[in-house]
Structures are given as structure tokens and as C-alpha cells.
Nucleic acid binder design. Sequence first.
DNA 1: ACCTGAACACCGTTCAAGT
DNA 2: ACCTGAACACCGTTCAAGT
Lengths: 226, 226
Amino acid sequence: MTTAQRGRPGPRRTLTAEAIVDAALRLLDRRGAEAVSVRGIAAELGVAPNALYTYFPDKSAVLRAVVDRLVGEYDPAALADPARPWRDRLHGLALSLRARLLAHPGAAGLLLGAPMDGPRALALGEALLELLAGAGLDERDAARASYLLIVYVLGAIALEAAELDPALPVPPEADRVAARRAALDAVPEETYPRTAAAARTVSRYITTEQFRWGLDRVLDGLAVKG
Amino acid sequence: MTTAQRGRPGPRRTLTAEAIVDAALRLLDRRGAEAVSVRGIAAELGVAPNALYTYFPDKSAVLRAVVDRLVGEYDPAALADPARPWRDRLHGLALSLRARLLAHPGAAGLLLGAPMDGPRALALGEALLELLAGAGLDERDAARASYLLIVYVLGAIALEAAELDPALPVPPEADRVAARRAALDAVPEETYPRTAAAARTVSRYITTEQFRWGLDRVLDGLAVKG
DNA sequence: ACCTGAACACCGTTCAAGT
DNA sequence: ACCTGAACACCGTTCAAGT
């Protein structure tokens, strides 16, 4: 599109879709998901609320654009290096996606709320399919495997993000583990003995290590190809 | 709405937490997530909006109770039968959970939005841990495996629900497949060749079969135990 | 084409009051 | 204890108008 607004007097051109997404993400990080209102974004940009409707049809389109922006923030180097084994590259992709999304817990909560059909989400899916094809999977298996991997990675991120306060900076991993263990400790032992026991045994629950472990189980399952 | 205008003047006792969750779920099914307002639920119950605050501290607590109600709707028989192999029982659990949650797409969208700490979610986690222990996993592996399974099952359900119109009855699977394929067909082939190709090869994308396939890959990975 | 002010039809939540 | 009416401080979106 990008209508070249040559020297004409007319409109002001103070906004761009990009700037709106930026402002929404800033608000999301600073004050959490429910602070992200059309009016709040507009105030952040110093414009009237309805100015946004020139660039997006409605609020949910803004939120989808925010998600797409973040989904595009994986490390491309993780995919490109042909010297690395395919499992390593998938690890790199998944871990960089998780790291970048968990840095914005408010946005991570939006991940599975709407279909991801933005350009960056499509590019990610395409890259994933290419990687799996390179790993030797045929078209059908690659499609299935990519869907499974997306489910795992996004599900894990969303589940982790749900436990974070979206208005606070993400606490260090040790604190998150401690919080999780405290929550498990609070579970009544008579009613849920095994759940309560998990507080004692699982020392690294909901962490990078659990994420990697799960990813490896999924990749093992894919290699087996049953 | 059965207003119990019974004799005594005192408190009316026209509501229960249960009735509020019922009303919220009805609204969710009929008109989608964004129609579920405190005022809407109250109107559904024939009561003033602020009456709900006697039973729930805020709106999000009502929504969490709705999610917990649905999470409790798995088939207990799927778990109980000791004659069935453990993989079969896990399949039964996952499939019944998926079927029941996808019947309420509006609610499924709330699944990963908040931590699931309701009593039914705890009971489900406990049942899952028990099942995995029965399958021979030690405490640590059972905890990790249960987390992985929860991520997969809830992630898959949420991702599927995101593509459904929450205000409409869930369409038959064939229609959902057709819609998915049409979406893939619309992807520009020059930019995303492999994604576009998926429209031709994946005939059962996003269906019960894909769900089962993914579940089997995950279970394969767990059996391998890396 | 792009932005504004004003308005419409809503929200969630609080509070004092009635029973 | 339970529910109400009224009010507060918000929403998303639309519309006519100005440039």
C-alpha cells in the first residue's frame, strides 16, 4: 500500500500502524493487558482515540498485530546455520521464541486468543516447515509435526505467562520456581497427595529446563514417527 | 429465575455461585466471550449487577470458575478402568477433555488466560499424576510428564478454539477442515510455498485425528524417556 | 486521507441504604 | 447476610465536520 503522500497539504500523517503497535506493546508491558485500551493507546500517542481507526478496523486487530510482531522476534540465526543438527536448530527456534514472548507476559496471554494469521506468523510457519523438510520429513508429516511443535511451544509459553503478573517485570527464574513450589505446598495433602508431593520432588518446575525437557520428548516422539 | 420471595424479610438468597457460573456459561455459548459481562450475567439471572459481588470478588473469578467447571467435565470412566492399558486411558482422558471444552469455544479461549487452580483442575492434575504413576513413572518424571501432557492438550484445544466463532454452534469437523484448507489456499504461494502446499497435502488438519496423532507422538516421547 | 470533538451505548466496581 | 439504586470512572465505536 504505502500511498506516497507527496507534498499535498491535506492530512497530518502523525501516525503509522507500526507506531500504534509500539504504543500498545509499551502499555502492555508497563501496565498489563487490561490497561491496553483504544483510549489508552491513543493517549500514549497523543492523539484522539478514534484516530486509530484509520489504521486498524478495531481493537482486536491491533492486538493481533502486537502478537504478530512478537512472533516475528525469533532468532533467524537459529534456523539458518546448516552445520547445526536439525534438533539443535529447532531447540534454538523454540527457546528464542519463548524467551522473547515471556519478556512480554501481557502479550503472551493473547497468543492463543485469536488465530495467528499475520505475516510474521506465516513466515515462522514456513521456516518451520522448511526446517522439518530438511530434517527428512515428507510434506504430510512435516505439516503435522509443525502443528504439534507450534501447539507445544505456544501452549507452554501461554501456560507460563498465565502465572506471571503482566504489569510487573518478569522475575528471575529462581523466584518463579519458588512461587510455584509455594503454590504446590499450599495444596491440601489429604485431598491431592500426589500434587502436594510434586512440591517436594520437582525442583525445576516451569522453567527453561522443563521447557527443554518437554521439547525433547516431543522431538523424540516425532523421530519415532510411529 | 425463581426469585424465592419466601416469607421472611431478611436476606433473599436468590443466588448461588453455581447459578452464576451457569448463567455465564449460557451467555458464553449463546453470544461469545465478549458478551459475558457482569451486567449481562446479572440480567440473565434477573438480578442487579452488583449482586454477583456477594459470591465472587470480581469478574475474573467468575470466569475462572467457568473454566474450572469445564475442566471437571472429563469422563472419569476413562481413567478408572484398570483393565485398559495406560496409553488408552490417557487417550480417553485427553479426548473427552477436548470434546467437552471444544463444545464451548468461548470458554476454551479463556483456558490459558489465567492459572488453573480451581478444585476440579487440581483433581484432574491429581488423577493424571496417579495414572502416570500407575504407568511406572517415578514421582519426578510423572510430574514432568503431566505438565507436558497438560501443555499439549490445553494448547491444542486453545489453538483450535481460536479458529472457531464462539457465538456459533461448533460446525461439523468436515466444515472445519474445509475452512482450514481454504485459509491455507489463500496464502500467497510465492512467499510461503510450503505453507500453501500444506493446503494440498494435509487433508485432516486440525481435527480429532491430528489431535490423536500429536498425542501419540507426545506419548511416544514419554515412553522413550530420553 | 487523516484526524478531531461529541456522542452513544455500554463497561466493572464501589458505596450507602434497605431488608 | 444479601440485595438494590445510584454513581464513578471508565470502555469501543460511530458520525459529522475540519483540514
